[in-house]
Each structure stands twice: as C-alpha cells, then as structure tokens.
Design a protein around this nucleic acid. Structure first.
Lengths: 349, 349
DNA sequence: TGTCCCCATGCAAGCGCTTACAACTCAACA
DNA sequence: TGTTGAGTTGTAAGCGCTTGCATGGGGACA
C-alpha cells in the first residue's frame, strides 16, 4: 500500500506497468495506437497510482493546450454569464477547456490578463468589444495567438468579431421609443471610456432622436458604472431636473432594474409617470414589475458561434469576418405611450 | 526590425541582452539580485521582444505556481459571485492567481475539475460544501494539495472550512417565521442530493417547526434546481394544494425572487396572502417588491478569510479548524404576521 | 519455410524555465 | 601588494511530458 508522499509521474506509471513512458503517453493520448492488453494494464496502474498528467509539462512538450482564454469585464452579473456559459459548453463539446478572467471593467488590466492567459498556454482568446490599446493587438500578432471579439460587431472593423451591432440595436429601440411619442429623454449609460459597446449604444440613441429633430437639450445622458444601485442613483439625478424625462433609456438591464427600483421608492408609477427601457433581456427583465422593455440579444447563439469560430481560427490559422447577429426589441409594460400634441411637443396623460 | 514569427523565449532574451538565461530569470524573479545596469538592459530587451514567461515551464522548474483553484456550483447567479470576488481580490493582494471552474451543480463533474486544476498546478483548492465522494478527499491527500471548504461550516467535521452553519442559520430564520405565527409552511429547496448546504437548510426548518410541535403534514417541501423560473414553478405547485402555506421559505434568494414573481402573476399579495423568505441576501433581495426577508450571509468576509486561510495552508502545510461565521436574519416586508388563535391553529387576516 | 511489411513499443531529444553551485571580479584591509 | 569575502554572473542539471525515429516480433503470403 503506497501511501506515497510523492506525486506520481509518467515515469512512475511506466515503471509500475513495465513499459516505457512513450507507451504510457500513448495510452493517454492515442489509445488506439496501443494494443488492448498493454493499455488495460497501463490504465489500471494510472488508476491505482492516482496519476494525473502535469499540464505544464504536457503543454510544453506538445506545444498546444486545447485551452481557450476569455477576458470579460465582470462575472458579477448575468450579462456575460449566459453567453459565456454557451461558449464554454460548445468548447467542451469540441474538446477544449475555457480559462476565464475578468477586468472588473478596468480596461488597463486587460493586457496583463491577456499575457497571463497566453503564458498559461491559451491557444486562442475571446475578447469583449473592440476598444483596446493597439499595442495589445500587436502583441497578439507577435505571439501569433488568434483572438476573436465578441459582444460587438461593427461592419467597418477588420477584426474577426461575433456579436451584434450595439449602435443599430439601440437605434431600433430608440425608434420605438420615439414612435411611442417620447420627446424628453433621459439616458443612463455605463461609463463609455474604454467601453465601445456602451458608447455605441448611446450613439444609437443620439442618432435616432437628433436625426428626427429632437432639440439636444431634451436628451440628457448620465454615465455610471454598471450596477443596480448606480442605476437607481442615476435615475434619481435625471428625475431631479426641471424638465424630467418621460422615458429613461438604460445602457443595460441591470441599470434599468436599479432605475425601476428607485422609481418605486420615489412613488413614481411606471410607465404612467415615467417609462424605462433596458438592454440585453436578462432573466431579470421579465421578473421586475413592471416587466422591462429591452433589446433581446442572442447571447447563447453568440457564445456557441464564438466557440466554433475561435476553434476554427486556432486549428486552421485563418481569420474570417462575420455578419452581425440580429437582436430584437422586446416591448413590455415598462414602456408607455405619450399623447403627442402638435409640433412634436408632448403632454403626459 | 524583427517581425519574428517565433515566440521569444528566455534564451532569446538572454542572447539579445548578452547575458545568461539565469540572469534573465533573476531579473524577473529576484531583481534585487542583479545589478541595476544589467537589469535595465535585460528588462529593455524583455520589453522590446514582447517576452512573456511560459507559465508551464516556470511551474515545472519552480515546482509551484502561486495559483489557487476554486470549484463552484455555478457562475450564473450572484450567490457565489460576491464571495468569490472578495476571495480573488485577497488572493491577488497576496500574490496569488485564481483559477475558477464550475460544475453547473453536477457534483459528478467535480472530480474531473479538481484533477484539471491540479494538473494546471493549483497549489491549493477552494471547494464548496462538504459532500463529495470520499475518493476525492483521498486523491487530494495523495497529491498533497491543501483544500479548504467554503460556504459551510459544521462543527463536527474535521475538514478545514470557512463558512456559516447553514442549518443553524435557517433555524434562526424559521424561528422568526414561527414567532410570526405561521403554522402552514411551504419550503422550496434546491436539489439536496449532492448539496449539503441545501439539505442542512431544509433540516434547519424541519428542526424548528417539528420541535415546536407542528404536525409534519403542515410542512411540505419541494425540491428544484436553483433558478428564478424554477422558483416560480415550485411556488405555484405549493399554492395549488388544498391547504396552501401561509409562508413559503426558499432555499435561497434566487428561488424566492422567482416565487415572488409568480405570486404577483397569480395576483397574490405579499405578505397579506402569503409570506416569502429567502437565503443569502443578494442585492436582488432589496430590489424586489416587496423586499425579501432573508438571511444575510457575510460573503465578502468569507471570501477574504478563505483566501488568507488557504494561502496559509499552502505556505505552511498545516491545516486548522475555524469557527463558523455569523449570519443574520434580515426581516423585510415579504414576511408578515399571522393572527394566532388558541392551540396553535392559525387564521389569516 | 523464407521474405516482407506492419504494428506495437522503446529510445532519446528536446519543450522553456529555475536554481544549486561554481567562477569570477573587485573593493577593503592588513 | 597579497588576501579575503561579498556580490554578481554563468554553467548545467533537471522539472514531466510528447514524438520522430529506430527496433523487433509476427502474420501473411508465396
């Protein structure tokens, strides 16, 4: 009974099974190249000894790891969780492992994390959004590590990306809001610095309303880091002005949920007193009262496709451009209509 | 201008800087042991070449990784996110890196993940809850990898654990519910198979009510995987009985939020028609309407302490037992009082 | 029974890094 | 000027694994 204090290695297994290390290695990596009798004997020993191959050594010798790295802004809310889950399931199906790390929405940490993931042998990387120091793209290129961008897709950017067009999506929602008669608009955005997705969404809103002739002063935007609490605070500040908005469009559902909570605390009725919209359609959007009007993004599909695309990039060393995924405006009770009077001015009922 | 296709190694750096690999290695790992002039020269080359040390090679040579692995049931909701965040921040402060993986609440996947993390060189492991195949504990022992249990702490178990006593916590909440006059109890629990935390919580509820003489048939428990949706469905099934509960105690806040949503959809008033309680006190608990009565667990403290404890275990090769953390019953509007009549029977107002 | 080829297995050279130990330099002191 | 020792740098031996190539044993076929 070997109560060994020492961790078993390939050598130990080989010794105990009476074969060479090469054979043991083959039993583990290409079982069909080893005759059954030998294989069984080896695998029994592996079992008995509790042997687990050393990943670092393997990576070094084999020069690949079947590992994909992903760097996301946060694991703290459902925004990335759903897509990432699908991403990882698909990777798993294709024999890859996922390594995740998060920047806590501090873009300056991203480079370090990229290095760490690459040092750990990531064969490919999933990154969120386009905006980052060009040096990072250079680094990726010298290291020859394929990277795929997700959660965004802009037609005029050359990088391979699987995602949706944040600007266009938000434009579609804004169009609906316009059609519902809103002319006094509040916007709660995530901090746009270093976050192109957030910026594009705000642009989408601006596009729509200003193109249709809304006076700029009727559109006020506040920025705040993503969190329920911050959403509430931002909402309060927007409502505290002389001409409070009739609708508050939020950069994502998390902010919107915060806004709804705060509205209730302020005894405002939604949507009678003020309408609220979100973005993403996380589960919560259907749970809050009233249910949230938002943009439904195909997170699962995005995750799955990203996995396939990235693996292809890794295995074939090629990069392709992809079309943007479609998102859909989901109208729920948090958005109400405004009775429009004459020349674009509005009145509430 | 080296548009090298090849990834720079220590050798490349050494060559370019005109020093030995040993010196380069020292510049990176023990800069004070290299004279400034040399160090600067080396670091410049490192910069220029975009060199990043190969983690696997380093781990193999140095025989440690300063990496801690954590295996949690899911990343999909806030339950583990908060504690894990604190855990990782504290690790970072002390120079360690976190590797996370999740089992999606399928305990049978845990062993594989433990192996994977150990293969990747994890110096120590954070595991959630006690219940797992004893073979796993054996394996951990042979590999000589320290493991710390979190999110649970039972006095009579020998494993080092940092967490709270799920049973006692739930007992405290149940006591409050009892005091509020409830005598017809519904319970929505997570699947208890393979999940000792969930099981203990149910036991806590049973303890309290049955000890106080509640007829067993007045206490009905349904199990369902954690999710908002499932919480809603379970709630509906509990309410569909001949004598529906006056309070539904949920195994965690996520289930409770689902229950609240469903109650509203059923046009039930909370807490007039039915009270609902949760467990964890995630952010959502204060957002839902009405705010949720729950048990506030010190997730952050738990995360921080776990990091310190685990690092100590890794560095000193010792294990200690820890006292359970305290949790606190948080009473909010989702729990109402029942007007008690005579011998323990109840009536609603 | 002899020849050929295929298949299972072994041998051994690294993969990129750390680190014990050796070697050297040079300032300080006698 | 010789000796000493502290401080800096180099040498080289692995860490545990994969894999190209070499080897040898049979089965198939003539």
């Amino acid at each position: 009974m070997p109560a060994k204090r020492t961790i078993p290695t390939l050598d130990d297994v080989a010794l105990a099974a009476g074969v060479s290390t090469a054979t043991v290695s083959r039993c583990l990596n290409a079982p069909e190249r080893v005759v059954k009798a030998t294989r069984d004997r080896v695998l029994t020993v592996v079992q008995t000894l509790g042997y687990t191959p050393n990943f670092g050594a393997r990576a070094m010798a084999a020069r690949r790891t079947s590992t994909i790295g992903a760097i996301i802004p946060t694991m703290n809310n459902a925004i990335f969780a759903r897509g990432l889950q699908a991403f990882q399931e698909q990777l798993h199906k294709r024999g890859y492992t996922l390594l995740v790390s998060s920047t806590s929405y501090r873009p300056e940490l991203e480079e370090e994390q990229i290095r760490a993931l690459i040092a750990r042998g990531a064969d490919g990387l999933l990154l969120i959004g386009y905006e980052r120091d060009p040096a990072i793209y250079d680094y990726l290129a010298t290291r020859d590590v394929p990277a795929l961008i997700a959660w965004a897709n802009e037609r005029d950017r050359p990088e391979p990306a699987i995602g949706f067009d944040n600007r266009a999506c938000m434009r579609a929602l804004a169009q609906t809001v316009w059609d519902y008669g809103h002319r006094q608009i509040g916007v709660i955005s995530a901090t746009t610095k270093g976050n192109d997705r957030a910026l594009r969404r705000v642009e989408g809103i601006r596009d729509t309303f200003l193109d249709r002739g809304l006076p700029p002063q009727n559109l006020s935007v506040v920025e705040t880091p993503y969190s329920i609490k911050n959403g509430g605070a931002a909402f309060a500040s927007l409502m505290a002005t002389a001409t409070p908005p009739t609708v508050v469009m939020c950069g994502n559902d998390v902010l919107a949920v915060g806004a709804i909570g705060r509205a209730q605390a302020m005894n405002l009725n939604i949507p009678e007193d003020v309408s609220i919209t979100g973005f993403d359609d996380i589960e919560l959007a259907r749970i809050v009262m009233p249910p949230l009007t938002t943009v439904r993004v195909p997170h699962q599909k995005m995750g799955r496709r990203s996995a396939d695309a990235l693996i292809d990039m890794v295995e074939t060393r090629t990069a392709t451009r992809f079309a943007a995924l479609k998102a859909k405006v989901k109208i729920r009770a948090s958005l109400g209509k405004i009775a429009t009077v004459a020349d674009g001015k509005t009145a509430q009922d």
